[in-house]
Design a protein around this nucleic acid. Sequence first.
DNA 1: TTATAAACAGACCGGTTGTCCTGTTTTGTC
DNA 2: GACAAAACAGGACAACCGGTCTGTTTATAA
Lengths: 220, 220
Amino acid sequence: MARKKRTNDPEGMRRRVLDVAEDSFQARGYHASSLGDLMAAAGVTGGALHHHFPTKKALALAVVEERVAAAIQETWIEPVLAASTAREGVRAVFEAVAAELEEQGYVRGCPLNNLAHELSLADDEFRAVLARIFAGWRQAIADKMRVDQTNGGEGGIDPDRFAALAVATYSGAMSMAKASQDAGVLRECLSGLESVQPSSGGPAARRRRRVLPRQTIQPR
Amino acid sequence: MARKKRTNDPEGMRRRVLDVAEDSFQARGYHASSLGDLMAAAGVTGGALHHHFPTKKALALAVVEERVAAAIQETWIEPVLAASTAREGVRAVFEAVAAELEEQGYVRGCPLNNLAHELSLADDEFRAVLARIFAGWRQAIADKMRVDQTNGGEGGIDPDRFAALAVATYSGAMSMAKASQDAGVLRECLSGLESVQPSSGGPAARRRRRVLPRQTIQPR
DNA sequence: TTATAAACAGACCGGTTGTCCTGTTTTGTC
DNA sequence: GACAAAACAGGACAACCGGTCTGTTTATAA
């Protein structure tokens, strides 16, 4: 009789769990993904899962910090930084994502946005991490545009405003694309975004950043 | 002994359940809201709940169709239609929502967007209704802008593009505001949106509306 | 080898979930 | 008042969920 051998592979097993969890959270969401399903899909026993991720929350936190953040980095930040200008980078990413969605035939939405909606009110630890990723995303675009401006290009438009507008438009367009299962709205929003003029917008870039009081958050 | 009397009030009971469900779905989401919690909060027994809403899905569907759609109608469509122009209406709604959020001290997000993220991939019936509400929202803005154009105002910008951009920007800004619990990003996005020039954007309003094939949606 | 801890297996449990089912009461109609 | 249907009460239940627990195997280092 062939005796079965076991090979310990902590990193590999951890990676497999994260792969499955990332995919399931994206497709079904956090609450709709049961640990049982994840264990079955990853081919992992309860003991192993609990060894690497003591709680479901810990697993989700790892997915957000390691996978979702990386996805934003790869599909947004790096391409924008590599582009000639921030504006051109944003345009390129919009088109690339739209093309990819049209090819694959369905829209699962932005992983960051998906999890942000489900978790940012549920748990403050989740919320903080998700907000940080959003902030980093915006700042990368804004910084890039500031470089553009010192290089002579881009008129008086405020980089932070443009970055916020780009990220908001993308997130919102993906929401609609997900609901309608039609990536066309991404292109529609892009062409609208392209008509944002380099000339200054409202009354001279006033700083507005008021954080809301913390103690009154989310009364049940 | 005072004998307890019961008064049948179908509409009232149904309304109370919808009130509680709408609030809980908004604050905690669909999956995180248990029927037990809803029953307790509404002061309704299981039998009564089941009588009006046979399943949880039926309840959520009613919330979406009757409450979420009405919320979009009241806070967006009606103010935009009542405004002098579509552009001005969009601006006014952005500011009104931002002011309201700052006053109440926390951000629960856009009810349509919240439920759209959680449910549009889970069930096609949900998805269809949510997509319909999104479409009606966009069309109202676009129609208003078309009226503006025949009245002489607004240059060559495509109304459908502007409407898509406005809704996407709002949805995305609300997502970020929810994650950061800071309504300031709404104002930031608005000022970016205001610098969308009335002059034509890309290459002359081409029609783009390709719906994705239906049979390949969401492979598990 | 031997000890020691990490990695993994798998059963188990209390609590919760959504739904169903059987009654009872109210309401409207003739 | 008789009667049927709607409105409501409340318990039952099977499935499932996330977490824990005990035990075994593998790797590591002395």
